[in-house]
Computed example of a mutant assay.
Amino acid sequence: MAGFELQVKEKAKVLKIYFKKGVKIVGDSCKKGWNRVKHMKG
């Protein structure tokens, strides 16, 4: 059981890292999109 729990914890750590990177990428693309919209109106 202990080995299984360690595997789950390791996978959770990796997923957190990927999730953070993913959020950053999405945030950047949203900023770019909003900038385009602002420039179109302006």
Rank of each mutant, 00 (worst) to 15 (best):
W34F: 08
Q7R: 07
R36M: 09
R36N: 09
K32A: 05
G27L: 07
F4Q: 08
K41Y: 06
G27Q: 13
D28L: 11
L15N: 07
M40W: 11
G33A: 11
V26T: 07
K9T: 00
D28E: 15
K32G: 05
S29A: 15
G3L: 12
G42M: 12
V37Y: 04
K13H: 03
G22R: 06
C30I: 13
K31N: 08
F19D: 02
A2K: 13
K41I: 09
V8G: 02
G3S: 13
M1L: 07
E10Y: 01
Y18P: 00
G22W: 03
G22A: 02
Q7G: 05
V37I: 12
V14D: 06
L6V: 10
K21N: 04
K11N: 02
V14K: 03
F19K: 14
V14W: 03
K32W: 03
L15F: 12
K20F: 04
K31I: 07
I17K: 08
K38L: 09
G27S: 14
F4G: 04
D28M: 12
K41W: 10
W34V: 07
L15R: 05
K24W: 03
G27T: 11
L6W: 03
F4S: 11
K11S: 01
V14G: 01
G33H: 04
V14L: 04
I17M: 14
K21G: 01
G22E: 15
K31H: 10
H39F: 10
V37H: 00
V14R: 00
M1D: 02
V8R: 06
E5V: 01
I17P: 00
H39R: 14
K16A: 08
N35G: 13
Y18F: 15
W34D: 02
N35Y: 09
D28A: 15
A2M: 15
C30H: 09
Q7P: 00
A2G: 10
V37K: 01
V14Y: 04
V37N: 01
F19M: 05
K21W: 02
I17Q: 09
K41A: 06
G42Y: 09
F19W: 14
I17W: 11
E10Q: 08
I17E: 14
V8F: 06
M40H: 10
K31W: 04
V23L: 08
K13E: 01
H39W: 14
K24E: 06
K32F: 02
K41R: 09
G42K: 11
A2I: 15
A2H: 13
K41L: 12
K32S: 07
I17R: 14
Y18H: 14
F4D: 07
K13I: 01
G27Y: 07
K24D: 06
G3E: 12
K38E: 06
I25T: 13
K16C: 11
